[in-house]
Nucleic acid binder design. Structure first.
Lengths: 338, 338
DNA sequence: TTGAAAGCGGTACCAC
DNA sequence: GTGGTACCGCTTTCAA
């Protein structure tokens, strides 16, 4: 179960640029010039080769902390890691964003703020001196938090959420729209009494609350909030008392919850959509696997490129006014369940 | 669309411990002592208060890079961010792991290696001088990569994968087991000719290849690889030519692909499980929503605590032999589709 | 109980 | 073309 290895006992010291310089018989300055291809300075080809070889042989890797300490700034874009599985939609968006930022030569660091309070988390982020912070979801930043980050050198702070935070560039992804589109669709289809499923799972409030509020705001809809956990039991329990609720439609937070509920309603002998119309959100593939096919609200996320260039711009021109951008659109897609 | 803000023009300089010292009328050393609660040194209560207040007023946050440069080591545990949505199972595990590491006072940094080759990615990681690297999935580390990380000061390198990497602590999550359990279950149910769905999507090979290989290794099973994309079209296309394939069972990588395939097979008029048995993997909730209910392979992941303490131990005792740990178990769960 | 100063690993200015 | 050196922010010995 254990294979021994000749691991260095007190561990060999990490090679520094001084080591490279010594080995190549040049100064530390020269090493720096060569390895960074400094334009402003000419180094002879033989010297370059010697330096490169020495670095290679030693397995030299520059020390990011030392570099950014000297430079006085980093290229770190910090993104708090979400802890709730946030769905393929969001994941894809984040991936795109990472790509795009990397193309702009930023280093994307996801920092897990799990188990930290908002203030603690922000402090921890600030210690890394990120040039930008993109906080989408979970932790809502206060104005004070934004100030802390700015003082620590962040030139752009971007938040997602229903409301803009003073001092931050706000990327407003208005989740309300989603609830509004769903409820409006149901009303259009002749429904009035709409049950809105609210996940019992913690950490989703930032999404679920606005979705509920959005539905509430639709004229002609009577909305009832229905807490439900992501489990067969919880769905069955809700379905069992469905007839008593006197609802003719359900909007179920997203397609996964909608599927779960629809399955339970069907098992309970209710006809979908005749007796109860069901609509989800996010337009997930799995929504098309059950019969009737699930109607949904399709969400158009901003492209990663777009947000990345927003970040880049904010970093380069931090003196500009903070802006508010609405970057998300939603539309109902009718399939068979409504 | 744009609200102006009194953003500091050339941006005020970030406050340093020297600023705090000046404001409190003490030396930088004293500031350090107070803010770090250094045991070895006694500071009078009034001085402590002055320092704390000054720091508070300035919004001082220490500079992580400077600190770790001086200390000569970091508490960073680096985890490459996966770019493919990896499923709730894996996400939960990663969350647990983050929690556990934080409790042990490590800073978990997820570094997006998107768009970097293996070597480039490893170099970038090494620049951060992480004390440990936990690379699960996607990028497979070569022995050379591990050496690079070790030279850069990483005291533990942990990889996931079917095979151990020389010099790294290997957390072997043997995906082969999953394929083996699935195929064995099908053989037990009297099936012989098994189609194994292999996702066309890039980035999943690290999981899909071993699962396929595991199925191949089961006595009594004739295995055929079936490339399929995660889309209704691809599934329908596969289902359309199913009868010609003369297969009596399918193992579909995971429950999502299995659901997709099963739906397409049913739509094609095939009877499940009579004409074709279908089994997935990961035991996702959605697998229970279709009828017949999907059989699956349930995977038991190691607990985050366990892996965290493994990491911690490796960091403290790096001279110990590198070890290989088998941390994953899998078992078939029969529902109705087999 | 507090302060002065060295030094962590790079970079970039200025001399030679 | 190349080298000497000051400095980025923080911790920690050593002296006072």
């Amino acid at each position: 179960m254990s294979q021994s290895s000749k691991s260095s006992e007190p561990s060999a010291p990490v090679p520094t640029s001084a080591d490279v310089a010594r080995r190549a018989g040049v100064s530390r300055a020269t090493v720096s010039y060569v390895l960074n291809n400094t334009e402003a300075v000419r180094i002879s080809e033989p010297t370059r080769r010697k330096v490169r070889e020495a670095a290679e042989e030693l397995g030299y890797v520059p020390h990011a902390a030392a570099r950014s300490l000297r430079a006085g700034r980093t290229r770190i874009v910090l993104m708090p890691t979400p802890h709730v599985p946030i769905g393929p939609l969001y994941s894809t968006f984040l991936d795109e964003l990472q790509w795009a930022l990397r193309r702009l030569d930023y280093t994307v660091v996801q920092y897990g703020s799990l188990g930290l309070s908002g203030d603690e988390a922000v402090r921890a982020w600030a210690e890394l001196r990120p040039v930008a912070v993109i906080s989408l979801g979970e932790i809502t930043l206060s104005a004070r938090n934004v100030a802390t980050l700015r003082r620590a050198g962040a030139r752009a702070v971007i938040t997602m959420g229903p409301t803009a935070v003073p001092g931050a560039h706000a990327l407003v992804m208005d989740q309300q729209q989603i609830g509004a589109r769903a409820a409006a669709h149901l009303v259009e289809r002749g429904r009035r009494r709409i049950g809105v499923v609210v996940p019992r799972e913690a950490g989703l409030e930032l999404f679920s609350a606005p979705r509920l509020a959005g539905a509430r705001g639709v004229a002609g809809a009577e909305v009832e909030a229905l807490p439900m956990a992501y489990s067969e039991e919880s769905a069955a329990e809700l379905a069992a008392r469905w007839r008593g609720l006197r609802l003719d439609a359900a909007f179920a937070y997203n397609d996964e919850y909608a599927m779960l509920l629809m399955r339970a309603l069907l098992d309970e002998g209710l006809r979908v959509p005749e007796e109860v119309a069901v609509i989800g959100a996010d337009d997930l593939l799995i929504g098309r696997l059950l019969r009737p096919r699930l109607s949904t609200v399709r969400i158009e996320m901003p492209t990663g490129d777009h947000l990345a260039s927003l970040v880049d711009h904010a970093v380069r021109e931090p003196s500009e006014a903070t802006e508010r951008h609405d970057l998300m659109t939603a539309e109902a897609v009718r399939r068979e369940s409504t």
